[in-house]
């Protein structure tokens, strides 16, 4: 809205290119690799195996998969111009608060809207696969989120910029240099707006994206609550201690 305070177009173009390139370099799977036709959908026998797993075993499997995905998000963040210039406290705050949200955003690349399945453990899996976790109230919104985001049919560049915008949220608690994060997020927002405009997107898509930003926050709040209640609580301290990835504990512990 205020052209005078906007960063120069060159800066924005450079940032946009940098973020899109970083996204492609760190997206874990290429879009072609994720084609549902390349992978099996979970069959009844597999489904039984997943559903018969103990809650602990299923949480452990998910913790490992989430941690793998988060490591790519950390790498994504590191390559975004400006992120490594933030103080280390803020880098950690942003990653702790936002890395899971970016994993959820990236999930739309691995979601098959034909049968409401998502790529998990080298197969396309429906929500029933996660039943043993014992938290349908978390799984349903995650699938709903993937469905909503997929329906926008975002390009890879749009997903990259949207992910960066979510990650650089200046409203996270405990940031020490909030203004620096705000400036970076604002630049990413303008870059995303420019890209959407260039791609001749309907103006409504921006509104839809903001709603989804809010939604990712809600999912994470729900995620953390459930994790605290079922996994990192006193229920399975031994499992968490010995079998959960250390990075997972750092990210979601407290």
């Amino acid at each position: 809205s205020n052209r005078d305070s906007s960063p120069p177009d060159n800066d924005l173009e450079h940032l946009s290119e940098n973020i899109c390139k970083s996204h492609m370099e760190t997206c874990q799977y290429l879009r072609e690799e994720l084609q549902p036709s390349n992978w099996q959908t979970v069959l009844q026998t597999d489904l039984d195996t997943y559903q018969k797993k103990s809650q602990e075993d299923m949480w452990q499997l998910c913790a490992v998969k989430v941690t793998e995905a988060v490591q790519y998000v950390v790498e994504f963040a590191k390559r975004i111009d400006g992120f490594m210039e933030l103080c280390q406290n803020d880098q950690i705050v942003l990653l702790k608060a936002g890395s899971l949200e970016v994993v959820f955003v990236r999930m739309c690349r691995a979601y098959n809207s034909q049968n409401n399945t998502v790529f998990f453990d080298s197969k396309y899996a429906g929500s029933e696969v996660f039943k043993a976790l014992g938290c349908d109230d978390l799984i349903s919104p995650v699938f709903e989120f993937a469905k909503s985001l997929t329906s926008l049919q975002l390009s890879e560049d749009e997903i990259g910029l949207f992910s960066a915008y979510v990650l650089m949220s200046a409203d996270r608690s405990w940031l020490q240099e909030k203004t620096r994060v705000e400036k970076l997020q604002q630049k990413i927002k303008i870059a995303l707006q420019n890209l959407l405009q260039k791609n001749q997107r309907d103006e409504g898509i921006l509104f839809h994206l903001w709603i989804l930003v809010i939604f990712t926050h809600l999912i994470t709040v729900s995620q953390v609550k459930i994790l605290l209640r079922t996994v990192l609580s006193a229920l399975y301290p031994e499992t968490v201690h010995t079998r959960f990835p250390p990075l997972y504990k750092e990210l979601f512990g407290s």
């Binding site: 874990q28 790519y72 950390v74 790498e75 950690i92 990075l247 750092e250 990210l251």
Partner: peptide, 20 residues
């Protein structure tokens, strides 16, 4: 720092996704 030592390490490493 001790509380987030893995994150610190990841942030300091010049790792690439293939190393992950």
């Amino acid at each position: 720092k001790e509380k987030h030592k893995i994150l610190h390490r990841l942030l300091q490493n010049s790792s690439s996704p293939v190393d992950l």
